[in-house]
Design a protein around this nucleic acid. Structure first.
Length: 574
RNA sequence: CGGGGCGUAGCGCAGUUGGCUAGCGCACUUGCUUUGGGAGCAAGGGGUCCCCAGUUCGAGUCUGGGCGCCCCGACCA
């Protein structure tokens, strides 16, 4: 391709909409343009990169026996309702209204129910199992807050794979084959990443792993053990206080007492005022859904882990109660709630609460707190659970090393779904004894378009993108510095057509721009190998080869250039 | 949806105590010169000042409503 012909609108200045490095570079390098929030146009260069990634994904999925197929973006609502997943997914699904005003269809946010419905009809016997299907397709999700360019979009490209099995052992084998295949995919994409244990969220199932790229532009918090490397999403990680053995200090329980705490609402304010530590307070959170309310107790210095709470409640319909509900329940504004002498509401508490002695809580009375509160004596907890968020520095459950807190971008999430979907949709098979059983299922999802952003995050410098060789939209960029010069033009054109004949992905900068412009753009778009052809060099019979990544520069004779480049490409490929 | 910020040429911005023809840089067009790290000179083109309503002799500027965009939080590949 010739630079003078391709639509490659590089920008000198950063558009105001971009915040993160990858987002800025994607716009500056002319890869994508935003249409509306969370929806992007892929320009020719961006599209080429997307295709490079898809090619790698296809190759690795095919290698483990994956069968590519293509499912529709339009789904019938009825199937979603039948699967029991409608309540969980409907908030992110775009609903379609047909011209008669009927809303019987939605845009697909994920495809478990579609594939399960298909397999239910097409597969009857254990002899047809296992199966591994995948597709690379557009997903539509009405995300609450799209951001960071391609990292969180409302329309995005995903590789989603689904496997079906007659036994757990068979699923485990496929799961680990996919696990390894996905590692190879990300290695080939030039990414460094961490595989973490994760929460399965609304997809259901038990075991799941996320592939996380460590980056400040990430949306997830993960904890990594600095000793053994074990890692988990902070949402998922169980605390070490789960054991029912209590470390309750054998302090003398003092008599309950009410103290005035005017306008002291936050843990910090109350702790400072009463001259105690925040860990001596019991935080009381009121949760509500349509019908009920719930009191959640957590130690003052801990953070509630809402995922753990929602997993326990088995619903995402619960939210933190609003001011009015809190006032009705506690006879006080937010900030003075407590578990003592409160009527008609279930109380659950983190394990740490059980160990507390002479604690401080709200008095359910405006401007008052209680001191010397003791669980068991002053209030009853219906259930103790693991509800707190693990903090940096806490011990690793595997090796007692310490956890470090990092932020990551989730590029892949793989799940052992069990029989969640097959049972809901009645997708069964006959085993070798003729017994009908629900299919055992796995699913595996890579955010393809998100990978573009992620690869840039990890492969750039102050001058621009540095594409990993396999992802690079062009492998070689010929920078013809003085293209108006007949000599330069003929050498550049000849080399260009030779590379095309050799099936080398080559871009020729034949624009009438000054050298500075060409060099800046070359650095920005990050093509791995650059050949600089200029008047001065040619006078000595030389051209220059530069590597984007190492900045290594070599002057070579014109006759040698072709072979030099071919061997350089070979070295990149191995 | 809650909190914060923004909306003026393709991009980055100024102009906002109401005032006459809305400006700067980059980009774009034409010509000449230049050509190894974002060239110079000259001449040009390009604007519903986000939208609607109101106040006013007069609104980019003031008031009200709406829409869009970005950042922080809940959701997730």
């Amino acid at each position: 391709m010739r630079f003078s012909k391709i639509l490659l609108p590089t920008l000198k200045e950063v558009p105001a909409e971009a915040e993160t490095i990858s987002h800025k570079l994607m716009l500056r390098a002319g890869l994508v343009r935003k249409l509306v929030t969370g929806v992007y146009v892929y320009l020719p260069l961006g599209f080429k990169i997307l295709e490079k990634i898809k090619k790698i994904v296809r190759a690795e999925m095919n290698k483990i026996g994956g069968q590519q197929m293509m499912m529709p973006a339009i789904h019938p609502v009825s199937l979603w309702k039948e699967s029991g997943r409608w309540d969980l997914f409907s908030p992110v699904m775009y609903r379609l209204l047909d011209n008669e005003g009927r809303g019987n269809t939605v845009l697909g946010a994920t495809h478990e129910v579609i594939i399960t419905n298909l397999v239910k009809r097409e597969i009857q016997s254990y002899r047809q199992l296992p199966q591994l299907f995948y597709q690379i397709q557009t997903k539509f999700r009405n995300e609450l807050r799209p951001r960071f360019g391609l990292i969180r979009c409302r329309e995005f490209t995903m590789m989603d794979a689904y496997s079906f099995h007659s036994t757990q052992k068979s699923l485990d084998e496929t799961y680990s084959a996919v696990y390894e295949a996905h590692k190879r995919i990300f290695d080939r994409c030039g990414l460094s990443y961490k595989i973490v244990e994760a929460d399965s969220g609304p997809f259901g199932g038990k075991v799941s792993h996320e592939y996380m790229v460590l980056s400040d532009s990430g949306e997830d918090k993960i904890l990594i053990c600095e000793a053994c490397g074990y890692a988990a999403n902070i949402e998922k990680l169980a605390t070490q206080s789960n054991s029912m053995t209590t470390n309750k200090e054998e302090k003398k329980q003092l008599p309950l007492k009410e103290v005035e705490t005017i306008n002291m609402k936050t843990v910090e304010e109350v702790a400072r005022f009463l001259k105690v530590k925040s860990r001596d307070l019991i935080k009381t959170l009121v949760y509500q859904n349509q019908e009920e309310k719930l009191l959640v107790l957590i130690r003052g210095d801990d953070e509630l882990n809402e995922v753990k709470l929602k997993n326990y409640l088995k619903s995402s319909q619960w939210t933190l109660a609003d001011e009015e509900v809190v006032r009705n329940l506690t006879n006080a504004p937010c900030g003075f709630a407590g578990p003592v002498k409160i009527e008609g509401v279930k109380i659950i508490a983190d394990y740490k609460i059980k160990e507390m002695c002479n604690a401080v809580t709200g008095a359910n009375k405006e401007n008052y707190h209680l001191i010397n509160v003791n669980p068991g004596r002053d209030f009853t907890v219906d259930e103790y659970l693991d509800l707190r968020t693990v903090r940096e520095g806490e011990p690793c459950p595997k090796c007692k090393g310490k956890f470090m807190l990092k932020t990551g971008i989730e590029i892949d999430h793989i799940f052992d779904l069990g029989t969640t979907y097959s049972q809901a949709l009645g997708a069964n098979f006959l085993d070798d004894k003729g017994v009908e059983k629900p299919l055992i299922m796995g699913c595996y999802g890579i955010g393809i378009s998100r990978l573009i952003s992620t690869i840039i995050e990890q492969n750039c410098d102050e001058k621009g993108i540095i594409w990993p060789f396999e992802i690079a939209p062009y492998k070689v960029l010929i920078v013809a510095l003085n293209y108006y010069d007949q000599n330069v033009k003929s050498v550049a054109d000849k080399l260009y057509s030779e590379f095309i004949d050799l099936k080398v992905d080559v871009l020729l900068d034949d624009r009438e721009e000054t050298p500075g412009v060409k060099f800046k753009d070359a650095d920005l778009i990050g093509i791995p190998i650059k050949i600089v052809i200029g008047k001065k060099g040619l006078a000595e019979g030389k051209v220059e080869i530069q590597e984007r990544k190492t900045n290594k520069t070599e002057k070579v004779n014109i006759e040698e250039i072709k072979n030099k480049i071919l061997s350089l490409i070979l070295s990149f490929n191995t």
